[in-house]
Design a protein around this nucleic acid. Structure first.
Length: 459
DNA sequence: TTAGGGTTAG
């Protein structure tokens, strides 16, 4: 009698797995329920399949709740169960949850494998803890576990992301000497790391090494290098790379075009930006919401808020919805056009339609009020904001200075220093210069030394 | 299970 039961569990698992692979978790669940009704007992594979699907399509919490069901059914979780949960939590950037799960796993006597460690390392790096990640890496080796290529890539990536590009490069060289064969991913990681560390010559050499290893740069390589060009104000080169991407078929979506256009708009090169958008239009890639947002931003920066608003109708006629970016661009466009009242109205509209992530739009309005001389209203709005970020504060400090209220600006700046909120250097010097300009030399000096002290304390 | 990732404010 045991054999048919096992067989039917296998069939159940195959069935559940097929539905999960087709993103149909609800159907997989109904198969599970039908199975139970027919007396088919689920096993650890059944639950692991469901957990893995839930982490992918429904989020960590629903995946974790399967663990309870599993235990109720008398099935014990294994290393695969926990690896899925770890990956799910890490994917949602629930880093402390990931660490907690790792402990939980060990407390239950489940021995982590190399993938559990990989996820743990990745998580520690994201938490900004490269030393701890390095310890885990050494643990893997000392336990005699066989590291996977991904293990090395996670290490190299983590070191780069934590500002240890030199160490990453050293590790890469050492590994290569010991027979490690880098993948294209590895090269892309290093090129990005070197670009962000502004080591452009080294990045270029790595790109050559990538090619001489027999790899062809892919879309990731291109986007990475292009962003790097724009960041270092090499606009012509950036545009050339976009052109190369186009001719090599790497602009299969709007990413390349909109990245380039966004960077060009920001640096004031609006004609070049518009050309990028035209290239995208001509390429036959259909416009998407980001395309429209970028175009709207272009119009707003050109001072053509009306043209930007006309695009709203076009978006809606396609049956799409404007997102928080769209509305924020419009709010800012109105502010910059001197129509702060309309901007406030549009902000209210954003809230009415249920767009709750409006911090940037609020920041725009606070700044708009300040810049149009309504410092009292700006201050009132600033005080009413529950959520603020360093932009909110920087903008307020700037506008207080503009209104000649240097003492208030100084007080606000000091409170930021105390709580570790970063204020733009230009806003800081505006306060100091302002205090000086009205004869408050001593206050200016005290403030300056306090800024210095805060810099030491926060480093 | 590891890489880039487009659009908004100071």
């Amino acid at each position: 009698m045991a054999a048919p039961a096992r067989l039917s569990t296998r069939l159940l698992n195959i069935c559940i797995s097929s539905f999960c692979k087709a993103h149909q978790v609800a159907k997989a669940e109904s198969v599970y329920v039908d199975g139970i009704r027919l007396g088919v007992l689920p096993d650890v594979v059944t639950f692991n399949t469901l957990i893995s699907a839930y982490t992918r399509f429904d989020g960590f919490d629903s995946a974790y709740s399967v663990l309870y069901r599993m235990e109720k059914a008398g099935v014990s979780p294994d290393v695969v169960t926990y690896n899925s949960l770890l990956a799910g939590a890490a994917r949602e950037r629930e880093l402390s949850k990931t660490l907690h799960l790792f402990d939980e796993m060990r407390q239950r006597g489940i021995v982590p494998d190399v993938w559990s460690y990989n996820t743990l390392m990745h998580c520690l790096f994201r938490l900004g803890n490269p030393d701890e990640a390095n310890r885990v890496f050494k643990d893997i080796i000392s336990q005699g576990l066989e590291p996977h290529t991904a293990t090395f890539n996670i290490m190299i990536n983590g070191l780069c992301k934590n500002g240890c590009t030199a160490n990453a490069l050293m590790l890469f060289r050492n590994l290569k000497r010991h027979g490690f064969v880098p993948r294209l991913v590895t090269y892309n990681i290093l090129i990005d790391g070197l670009c962000k560390a502004r080591r452009l010559a080294a990045a270029r050499r790595m790109l050559m090494e990538l090619k001489s290893s027999g790899y062809t740069p892919n879309a990731v390589t291109y986007t990475t290098v292009m962003k790097c060009c724009f960041r270092s104000k090499k606009f012509e080169q950036g545009i050339e790379i976009l052109q190369e991407m186009m001719s090599n078929g790497y602009t299969f979506d709007g990413f390349g075009y909109c990245t380039a256009a966004g960077a060009l708009i920001k640096s004031g090169r609006r004609n070049d930006a518009f050309e990028c958008m035209e290239k995208m239009e001509r390429s036959g890639i259909g416009p998407d919401i980001v395309y429209y947002n970028t175009l709207m931003n272009y119009y707003c920066k050109e001072g053509k808020v009306g043209a930007a608003f006309e695009l709203v109708g076009e978006i809606q006629s396609r049956g799409w919805k404007c997102d928080e970016y769209t509305h924020t661009i419009l709010v800012d466009g109105l502010c910059k056009a001197g129509k702060v009242k309309d901007a406030q109205g549009h902000l209210q509209y954003m809230n009415d339609i249920g767009l709750s992530s409006d911090l940037v739009a609020r920041n725009c309005v606070v700044d708009g009020l300040g810049k149009s001389g309504k410092i009292g209203l700006a201050m009132k709005m600033f005080k009413s904001m529950k959520l603020k970020d360093s932009c909110t504060y920087s903008s307020m400090v700037h506008n207080l200075c503009k209104a000649g209220r240097y003492r208030t600006a100084s007080k606000l700046l000091l409170s930021c220093l105390k709580s570790g909120i970063k204020i733009l250097p230009s806003a800081r010097s505006a306060v100091i210069n302002g205090l000086r300009s009205c004869g408050l030399q001593r206050e200016a000096k005290t403030l300056k030394s306090k800024i210095k002290l805060a810099r030491v304390l926060h480093h």
